[in-house]
């Protein structure tokens, strides 16, 4: 991408109907005259409801090698489905953090190519955040292994995290997107990630797993920092654009 190009510059964007003074009104007129299928948008809900009543789940939890720690938390047996909630969510965070590493890889490449702005991310900061994600991934692997679970298994929530993240990967890895556009997509990931770490700590706390809670608090703090940093970079970028002082040479 040419560094002097900005997505907010004017060019011929052909998507709006008002760009077509003749064809625009004609297409409106054509739609008005055409008969429609009977019913309303509620028809879609009916089909969705029908399928929801008939189909099974996306998938289930894998059978663990053994559940050593949590099943007997505090000396009291814990029902297996509750243990699986914790394992499912640990698996979800593991998948998210691993993809997070790759998101930062793509952000670093973009920052190298495009440069940053005063108050924006530096390569060193992005590399530090990337190392945090990698560390969280490794920590979750250890936690799952210690709980007797298989850290390579894709749990149902981990699978859905992959679906959720797909759009973010697309925006960040697109060479046509600017660093602020990519960071905006990445902010979605950081907002979900920080909220999900909070939830994970709460679940571990509910199990009375004090040592686990302690382990999970450090990533939570770091993810909250990531979220705030990305937010600040984007706010600063907007402020510089508004003041007309944006310079990518920082």
């Amino acid at each position: 991408m040419n560094r002097v190009q900005r997505p907010t510059d004017l060019a011929l964007n052909r998507t709006g109907i008002y760009l077509s003074p003749t064809d625009g009104p004609a297409v409106v007129e054509g739609a008005r005259e055409a008969p429609s299928s009977p019913g309303c948008a509620r028809a879609l809900a009916e089909v969705r409801r029908q399928y929801a009543g008939e189909v099974g789940l996306i998938g289930h939890m894998p059978a663990p090698a053994s559940l050593r720690v949590v099943e007997n938390a505090g000396g009291t047996p814990v029902p297996r489905h509750r243990v699986h909630l914790l394992l499912d969510k640990l698996g979800e965070r593991l998948a998210f953090e691993r993809t997070g590493v790759r998101l930062f890889d793509a952000l670093i490449a973009k920052c190298e190519a495009q440069g940053s702005w005063e108050g924006g991310p530096t390569l060193a900061e992005l590399a530090e955040f990337r190392a945090d994600e990698a560390h969280h991934f490794a920590l979750l692997q250890d936690v799952l292994i210690n709980l007797g679970a298989d850290p390579t298994a894709v749990t149902p929530s981990a699978d859905l995290a992959g679906v959720e993240l797909a759009g973010i990967v697309q925006v960040v890895s697109d060479p046509r997107t600017t660093l602020p556009q990519a960071l905006h997509a990445h902010l979605v990931a950081e907002l979900v990630d920080s909220a999900s770490w909070e939830q994970l700590v709460d679940i571990a706390d509910d199990f009375g797993e004090t040592a686990l809670v302690h382990k999970l608090r450090e990533p939570l703090v770091q993810e909250l920092h990531h979220r705030d940093a990305v937010t600040a970079w984007l706010k600063r970028h907007a402020a510089l654009v508004v003041s007309g002082t944006l310079d990518y040479g920082a």
Partner: peptide, 19 residues
């Protein structure tokens, strides 16, 4: 990334390692 040697290796270009 499960391999620590890969996971912890620097991803920055050598001359820009300080940002």
């Amino acid at each position: 990334l499960a391999d620590p040697r890969i996971r912890d290796a620097s991803v920055l270009p050598p001359l820009k390692a300080t940002g």
